[in-house]
């Protein structure tokens, strides 16, 4: 127990890194998901092909391998470009935090395209027709009708993606992002209590997962507040 208290500041800092990474990735996931779902539902065969290919690739490759590809791939490319300017440069990379956030967002984003696509398909066609009949523009239909309706239908699936996203943030310690797992690795080299340290990490993740589950319950309740009276 004393070991955990000794390292509590570092764990707190690590947790903050994880949480930041989570939210940065989350924003990217929403962008990927919406872009991908729109492309999959579009009439353009090219857009559908690209979106489907993206989904197959990002869901079929292990998250960990994708992370390595993004981080080391970008590092080699950047180093080569930098060397063509200045041969003295030995190594250049994208900050691991951003490479990690990007790689994780690709994986979860690929899953989100399917969830969003299903949710867009779940919208009552009559509503869209009614909105068009009222003279709303395409953008208005999307912004005021499709998006709010879709959001509600996508919530349960999206909640699961958020849990996966949180758990994937553990991976970035491998490329040197100083999250809680990284903290535990450092602590272990000093106090030789790996079991205590890694178990602490597990319980921090468990607590964060619980926060996500509870938050999603509240959001779901809010999304269906108009049906509260009927129930």
């Amino acid at each position: 127990m004393q070991e955990i208290i000794n390292w509590s500041d570092e764990f707190l800092a690590g947790a903050m890194v994880i949480i930041q990474l989570f939210f940065v990735s989350l924003l990217m996931v929403i962008v990927w998901g919406l872009l991908g779902a729109t492309a999959k539902l579009s009439n353009s065969r090219i857009a559908r092909g690209i979106a489907n290919g993206f989904t197959v690739l990002c869901r079929g490759i292990p998250e960990f391998l994708l992370l390595l590809i993004v981080y080391f791939g970008s590092a080699v490319t950047l180093t080569n470009i930098a060397r063509s300017w200045d041969p003295e440069i030995r190594f250049m990379d994208i900050p691991p935090f951003w490479a990690g956030a990007f790689a994780i967002s690709l994986v979860i984003g690929a899953y989100a395209t399917e969830t969003f696509r299903g949710a867009f398909l779940g919208i009552d066609k009559g509503l869209v027709e009614a909105a068009k009949a009222l003279g709303l523009t395409r953008f208005q239909v999307f912004w005021r009708l499709r998006l709010p309706m879709m959001w509600r239908l996508a919530l349960p699936g999206f909640g699961n993606h958020l849990l996966s996203l949180l758990k994937d943030t553990a991976l970035v310690s491998v490329i040197g992002v100083q999250g809680i797992l990284f903290t535990a690795q450092q602590a272990t080299t000093v106090n030789h209590k790996p079991f205590t340290m890694y178990l602490t990490v597990a319980f921090i993740f468990l607590a964060l997962s619980t926060v996500i589950v509870v938050t999603m319950k509240c959001i779901e309740k809010y999304a269906y507040r108009h049906l509260e009276a009927a129930r």
Partner: peptide, 12 residues
């Protein structure tokens, strides 16, 4: 086991 990352479980 569903609430924690596999990597952390493996390290434990």
């Amino acid at each position: 086991f569903r609430g924690t990352p596999i990597l952390v479980q493996l390290f434990i």
